[in-house]
Simulated assay, not measured.
Amino acid sequence: MTLPEGAVLPVVQAPSTVLSTPGESVDPTAPEILQLAADLLATMKVSPGCVGLAAPQVGVGAQVFAVDVTGHPKARTTHGAFVLCNARIVEASQWQKGREGCMSVPDLTGDVKRASRLVVAGYAPGSTEETHITTDAFEARALQHEIDHCAGLLFLDRVAGAHAVYARKVYL
């Protein structure tokens, strides 16, 4: 499926209510979802360091997200740039704590415990056939982070407490 030309959208920041509201299930074949998928990929591409972006982060209350951890130093397995609709975790194991940041919470990072081995089911834009992605390490973390966005959760909702939240370092 070829996506339309994507537009770069503004990224919503906490405490916007769209970030804390579970997204709606979508029809992955709907033209507006194909456009949203293209927009998420286009927005990611121009955002330095971005490895994932969910529909709620661009103000759309839908269960759609894009991920691309290609070239990230912590990535072991990578499936390139992809978009999933209505994703759900099928299997999760080997939990590990790791530092996370988010474009919607630009000034903070936090330690979050997530599965480092993961199987996710969902739908590619334009497809009615469910697909499964088996991954690990950093890509697994990115998928869980984006699935959380679609459920109305931020990484701050997953930290163990204030002691696990840090001011983001600014590199000049």
Rank of each mutant, 00 (worst) to 15 (best):
I147A: 06
Q144V: 01
V51P: 00
A142Q: 01
L34G: 02
G6E: 13
E100F: 00
R99V: 13
S25Q: 15
F65Q: 01
A14F: 12
H163N: 09
S93T: 09
V165M: 00
D68Y: 04
L118C: 03
S25R: 15
F138S: 01
Q13D: 05
A30C: 11
V58L: 08
C85M: 07
D27F: 12
S116G: 11
P125K: 04
E146H: 08
L53R: 02
E129F: 03
L118E: 09
L3S: 00
A115D: 04
G98N: 02
E129D: 09
T70R: 12
V170G: 00
P31H: 11
L108Q: 09
E32Y: 10
V64M: 13
V11Y: 10
F65I: 00
G61S: 15
Q94I: 00
A30S: 11
V69F: 10
V11I: 15
V119N: 03
S104D: 03
C85N: 07
A140D: 10
E100L: 00
I147T: 00
Q63D: 15
H149Y: 07
G126M: 11
G23M: 15
V11T: 13
I133A: 11
A137N: 14
L153S: 07
F65H: 04
Q13P: 00
F82C: 04
H149L: 09
V11N: 14
L9R: 13
F155N: 03
E130V: 13
E130A: 14
A160G: 14
P22H: 12
K113F: 10
A87F: 06
G71V: 02
L108V: 00
G52R: 01
A30D: 12
A42N: 00
A162W: 10
H79Y: 14
V26G: 15
H163T: 03
E100G: 00
A14E: 12
M44D: 06
V26Y: 14
L84P: 06
A38C: 05
C150D: 01
S16Q: 05
L84N: 02
F155V: 01
A92C: 02
L118F: 10
G122C: 14
G71K: 04
Q94Y: 02
A14T: 14
